[in-house]
Design a binder for these strands. Structure first.
Length: 260
DNA sequence: ATGACGGTGTGGCACCGA
């Protein structure tokens, strides 16, 4: 069983690339972020023709998340329960998989602009809300996967310039403390369960040939619950789509799980 | 470097992302 996450930075622009990727990578579920479209503009039929059902929480221009899956999504929740949010950043669903059910939580975490800004304060509040809610979700659903664009580098290995970017956005002690707090709930960064190439990133700026120079950050994650940890067979970053014409600035992360 | 690139909505640009 394979689950993937991909910030597509506009599904309108990237739909052909998503369809191509799914044809080459027939995962059981694909979690998307930054759809940048409203629900009525979501390409339900094109994805259905590709074999995927969709649970969608869209928003015009900004944000927007979806879970594409081969089996139907049940018990769909939009946004963080107990945290009022104007923005469409979270969708959760239960999927029936071989051997049991899997709870998927897909998040487009707040960017935060810069430490000290109003947006950074919103990021901290949002992360507080997410953690409180996830604690309940984990209690109700032992087989849980938290995926998405976290907009945090978990540690210095996850950024091309740990010294130069120290305490800047995505690198602050506060953001990393939030990442650690999520881990402390009983979640594990699947990517770091395995030996990985040095300087592995999931995002590169469009500017200054950042991809070619591998000046990136690993900000897209798949975290698995304690019950799922023994089932994790692999976790990889697929850099291939970043080589496409008009690529997203993020690439997919894929986890492989043994049957539940 | 108040920059760079790319997406959106609208517009002859501004705002946002990371």
């Amino acid at each position: 069983m394979k689950i993937a996450t991909w910030n597509v930075n506009s599904l309108t622009v990237r739909l052909p690339q998503v369809l191509d990727w799914l044809a080459a990578n027939p995962v059981d579920a694909l979690c998307l972020q930054e759809l940048k479209l409203s629900d009525d503009k979501f390409p339900l039929q094109a994805l259905e023709a590709a074999g995927y059902q969709s649970a969608v929480f869209g928003q015009k221009t900004y944000n927007g998340v979806a879970i594409l899956s081969r089996s139907p999504a049940r018990n769909v929740v939009k946004n963080i329960v107990g945290f009022t949010d104007e923005q469409s950043r979270v969708i959760a669903a239960t999927l029936d998989m071989p051997g049991g059910e899997l709870r998927l939580v897909n998040g487009y975490f707040v960017n935060g602009q810069s430490p000290g800004s109003d947006k950074f304060a919103y990021k901290m509040k949002w992360l507080d809300g997410l953690r409180a809610w996830l604690q309940q979700e984990l209690a109700a659903h032992p087989n849980l996967v938290l995926v998405g664009d976290f907009n945090i580098t978990a540690d210095d290995r996850d950024t091309f310039d740990p010294e130069g970017l120290r305490e800047t956005i995505h690198h602050t002690t506060e953001e990393r403390a939030h990442f650690k707090a999520l881990v402390k709930l009983g979640l594990t960064d699947a990517f770091r369960m395995f030996e990985q190439p040095e300087k592995s990133y999931s995002w590169w700026d469009y500017r200054e040939f950042a991809f070619r120079r591998n000046r990136g950050m690993r900000i897209d994650y798949i975290l698995v619950s304690d019950a799922l940890k023994p089932k994790v067979a692999s976790c990889t970053i697929d850099k291939q789509p970043r080589k496409n014409e008009r690529p997203s600035d993020h690439v997919p992360v894929v986890v492989e799980l043994d049957s539940l």
